[in-house]
Simulated assay, not measured.
Amino acid sequence: MRPAFLTCLLSLCALGACSSLPDPATDPYGLWMGRLVTEQGTCPTEEMSSLRIRGHEIVFNPGMTSSTLRGTYRKGDQHYLADLTDKGMNGTPYRQAFDGYPVGTAIGGTYTSPRCRAHVSLVRR
């Protein structure tokens, strides 16, 4: 077999597999993984971040840290919102937020905290 033919065949197989993925705009349920990309400040980029949508619950874990951001999902929503407000070291509120939305077969989003701002592209696992 020619290498060019084999490359084309493998590419077509990969495209066929991708086209059968459910659209997150209509079926966002499941586990989504991706790595944060820092836009400003210091973000937890060393580890993967995860988003889980199950039933009416949204859970986002930025960079596999101990922070768990939670939100509520309603079927048909096009935004996936989760947040967490803790007390900072000086007693002031420390708010973290995730705002996600469907982008093709992925979920894109923005993670913000007082120390950082990052974007992320999450794929279904």
Rank of each mutant, 00 (worst) to 15 (best):
F5L: 15
C8V: 11
L12F: 14
P114V: 02
L9C: 12
V103I: 11
T68I: 07
G71V: 00
L122S: 00
R2L: 11
P102A: 04
M64E: 12
P102I: 01
R95S: 12
Q96G: 05
G63K: 02
P24R: 02
Y29A: 08
L10E: 09
C13Y: 13
D99E: 08
R117L: 05
G55I: 04
G34S: 09
I53D: 00
T72D: 09
L6E: 13
T65A: 06
I53W: 01
T42M: 10
I58Q: 00
T7M: 13
T72I: 09
K75R: 15
G91I: 03
L36W: 05
P22E: 13
W32H: 01
R117Q: 07
S19R: 15
M89A: 10
L81H: 06
L84A: 05
L36S: 03
D77T: 00
M89P: 07
P44Q: 04
V37Q: 15
R74F: 11
M1P: 12
C43P: 06
H56V: 11
P62C: 03
T65N: 06
Y111N: 01
W32E: 01
T38Q: 12
I53V: 05
P114C: 01
T68R: 11
F60Y: 07
R35G: 09
S11V: 13
N61R: 05
T45E: 15
P102M: 02
P93V: 01
V37A: 13
E46Y: 13
T26G: 09
H56S: 13
P44S: 02
C13F: 15
T42P: 02
Q96T: 04
F5N: 10
Y94A: 04
T72V: 11
R125T: 06
G91T: 04
K75F: 11
P28Y: 02
H56K: 12
P22A: 12
K87M: 14
T26C: 09
S50L: 01
G30L: 07
C18A: 15
P44K: 01
E46Q: 12
L6V: 15
L15A: 15
R117T: 04
L6H: 09
S49R: 03
V120H: 09
S67Y: 12
W32T: 00
L15T: 09
T26S: 14
Y111V: 00
G41P: 04
P114F: 00
L122V: 01
S121I: 09
M1S: 14
C43S: 03
L21S: 10
G104A: 11
Y80R: 02
P93Y: 05
R2H: 11
S67H: 09
E39D: 13
